[in-house]
Simulated assay, not measured.
Amino acid sequence: MRVLFHVQHLLGVGHLRRAELLVAAMAARGIAVTVALGGMPVAEMPFAGAEIAQLPPTRLDGANFKVLYDGDGNPITDAWRDARRDALLDLYERLQPDIVLMEMFPFGRWRFRFELEPLLARAARDRPRVKCVASVRDILVETKHPERAARGAEIARDHLDAVLVHSDPALFTFDETYPHAASLADRIHYTGYVTEAGDRQRGAQTGDVIVSAGGGAAAGALMATAMAARPQTALADRVWRFFTGPRCPEDVFQALRSQADERTIVERFDPQFQARLDGCALSISQAGYNTVMNLLRAEAPAVVVPYAEGDETEQEHRAKRMEALGLLAVVPETALSPETLAAAIRTALAGSAGPRPAIDLDGAAHAARMLEALAQGALGTAPVADEGSLKGLKSA
């Protein structure tokens, strides 16, 4: 069984990490995966177990989503789009996949329709028709273009065999942030959340404080504020580990490194990040999909500061729901200060001993099995977590 997996990251690396976990789960089932990678390479995420086909890469300039740039820093052109579309179609011809898996499209990644709609059209011409699947996180960003959401539903009905939603429906359902979900009910399958496997060896208890910022493109304010809040907390004398992310600007990283000492460790990345969270006394982070799932897997006390630049709403939505469950404390980005962060730390530490609701965190393994079943024409319903402990929190 061969899967062609289109993965496009622009700002952070959360999409990459979730895709990497999905690839690992597919590889464990003997599925041959080729990743068509559309963003700039990230050495810390090698997609072990898959073939990497690097498309002509594109990126953003900071958090400005309006203009895409090529690998040389030039705004992309129609000629660039044509060349990348052709590279993706050539890859399809070489692989002859059984399944085309697309990260987010047609529920996101709208500016890449120039290559993804031709890819779907090409898959539709094969006999038997190659199955096409969207891989979607729990929450979509609110759109200012409702016509795109409507068109996305049309594309999904015409071309997709399944929509794998990486969520536990007892916590978030797809219709909460996608208005046309009802029209796709026969294609939607909930996988559970994608994160590290539950049967891994847990990290040792260290009592450290872990401060992280995902990919790190917007790490500066959170890191600096955590440094300033530290003396106001009960954990001031612990080891504090700051992980800025691989995309943290060099000047920001060096400014943080200048404050490092034997109890203040500043690094860009740790391949054992989950193990660090397993043993920590507290986590301070943004509220991206992967980080929050890492926290749930570790059952760590946590404070999150949802990223909110560029009209981003996804992290705030997730953070509020998790806060309502008593799983973490939230500081809005607009209210971030050493004082508000220190107060949230006190709240998180005080509330960390209570019972935790059961949430399905085995989404990678479930998704791999679903794709295998789809290829065999036997895809059934997705696992659903016990809704009892989460009842009534959809409106939170």
Results as ranks from 00 to 15, higher is better:
Arg187Ile: 10
Val141Arg: 15
Asp175Trp: 06
Pro179His: 14
Ser167Leu: 00
Asp199Arg: 03
Arg151Glu: 13
Gln205Ser: 14
Thr173Ser: 00
His166Phe: 04
Tyr193Trp: 04
Arg187Ala: 12
Asp199Val: 01
Glu147Arg: 12
Leu171Asp: 04
His189Asp: 05
Thr191Leu: 03
Pro179Arg: 12
Ser167Arg: 03
Tyr190Asn: 08
Glu196Gly: 07
Thr191Ala: 06
Ala156Phe: 10
Thr143Arg: 11
Ile139Thr: 09
Val163Cys: 11
Ile188Glu: 04
Gly152Trp: 01
Arg148Lys: 13
Ala150Lys: 13
Ala181Asp: 10
Gly152Phe: 06
Pro179Tyr: 14
Arg187Trp: 07
Thr195Gln: 02
His166Pro: 00
Glu147Pro: 05
Asp175Glu: 15
Ala153Asn: 06
Arg202Gly: 10
Ile188Lys: 04
Lys144Leu: 12
Ala149His: 02
Thr195Ile: 07
Arg151Lys: 12
Thr143Lys: 05
Ile188Ala: 08
Pro169Ala: 10
Phe174Glu: 10
Ala149Asn: 01
Gly192Trp: 04
Asp138Glu: 15
Val194Lys: 01
Val141Ala: 14
His189Gly: 07
Pro179Phe: 13
Glu142Asn: 14
Ala153Lys: 09
Val136Lys: 00
Lys144Pro: 02
Glu196Asp: 13
Glu147Ile: 02
Ala182Pro: 07
Tyr193Ser: 00
Lys144Asp: 15
Tyr193Lys: 00
Val141Asp: 15
Thr143Phe: 02
His166Tyr: 03
Gly198Trp: 09
Val165Cys: 06
His166Leu: 03
Ala156Ser: 11
Ala204His: 01
Ala182Glu: 15
Val163Asn: 05
Leu140Lys: 06
Ala162Thr: 01
Leu184Gln: 09
Tyr178Pro: 02
Asp161Thr: 07
Ala181Thr: 11
Gly203Ile: 10
His189Pro: 06
Pro169Arg: 07
Pro169Cys: 10
Glu142Asp: 15
Arg157Asn: 13
Asp138Asn: 00
Ile155Ala: 02
